[in-house]
């Protein structure tokens, strides 16, 4: 059992008023209360970007890592103590500028960590340069004549790489985002959740209103169990952009397939007894 007050810290959010991060923050806290998790029941692993400031505003075991590196830190933590749920909170620069490699490998490992991507198409902390998720033609300080490249597609990369839970939500729709977070946090395996996050200061194209005009919920008739179809769906980016759960699959996790971790987490395993070590030395005689 937990309530909102449990996740309070002495620090107040320093995000710009109206930032999409507030919606993600609120949804995450709602999800934690919904699941009955206490601040000591899980670990949050942050990257660097506006999202990373959440380390100061959400009470939990946490580690704010380096830009691009929350995934491997989370993987190491999980392998050492897989009984404590591990949630990565990362930005789009974090994930697709510096850390794409880590995402691809975490997904194909089906390592049992959950990942929430703050996707605002822009670098806020460095005051407004293009992010890898920015749409073609988007004008920023680093692309005054418009972005030349096509954007990366977070969902398509996650699905192609083998993530077993792939979803997209919108920071301006807290009830639906909370539902997705709850499903993602309950999933066993690598869960990837892309969150549209309006940046009110540096992205004047993809505003709250823009998202409201363009997104639609995947219908109830959509069954997220077909990887090929989910991939196809993830490519949909026309006047209308789908949000919801695109794909989920039950598959053995990395730890499920690591025999030495079958009974207890690594941290609880005793050191090898001296006799076992001495026997190992004998093999070198």
């Amino acid at each position: 059992m937990s309530d909102f007050a449990d996740f309070k810290t002495p620090c107040q959010p320093n995000w710009c008023p109206g930032c999409g991060d507030f919606g993600i923050w609120a949804s995450l806290k709602q999800t934690l209360v919904l699941l009955g998790w206490n601040p000591t029941d899980f670990v949050l692993v942050y990257g660097i970007g506006c999202h990373g400031h959440m380390v100061n505003f959400l009470q939990s075991y946490a580690i704010e890592t380096l830009h691009g590196r929350p995934i491997p830190v989370a993987e190491g933590f999980h392998l050492a103590n897989h009984t404590l749920p591990t949630i990565v909170v990362a930005g789009d620069g974090d994930t697709f500028g510096e850390g794409t490699n880590h995402l691809v490998h975490a997904a194909r490992r089906n390592i049992d960590i959950k990942m929430i991507l703050h996707d605002n198409q822009v670098y806020g902390l460095t005051t407004g340069q293009t992010a890898p998720t920015a749409q073609k033609g988007f004008k920023t300080k680093s692309t005054p004549f418009g972005v030349i490249e096509d954007p990366v597609n977070p969902l398509a990369i996650a699905i192609a790489s083998g993530a077993t839970f792939v979803a997209r939500g919108f920071a301006g729709d807290i009830p639906n985002l909370t539902k997705i977070f709850a499903e993602g946090l309950r999933h066993r395996g690598f869960a990837f959740i892309d969150v549209f996050q309006p940046c009110v200061t540096f992205n004047h194209v993809n505003t709250y209103q823009w998202y409201r005009d363009h997104i639609y919920q995947l219908p109830d008739s959509y069954v997220p169990n077909d990887r090929g179809y989910a991939f196809q769906k993830s490519l949909e980016w026309t006047d209308k952009i789908p949000v919801g759960i695109f794909f989920r699959e039950d598959k053995p996790t990395y730890v499920d397939q690591t025999p030495q971790l079958s009974k207890s987490p690594l941290i609880s395993l005793p050191n090898a007894p001296k006799e076992t070590i001495e026997k190992l030395f004998e093999e070198f005689v």
């Binding site: 692993v45 580690i63 890592t65 380096l66 590196r69 491997p72 830190v73 989370a74 993987e75 190491g76 933590f77 999980h78 392998l79 050492a80 103590n81 404590l84 690594l266 941290i267």
Partner: peptide
Amino acid sequence: NMAIGASFAGV
């Protein structure tokens, strides 16, 4: 970074 994460967990 994995080693740092594992160390943070306590091993």
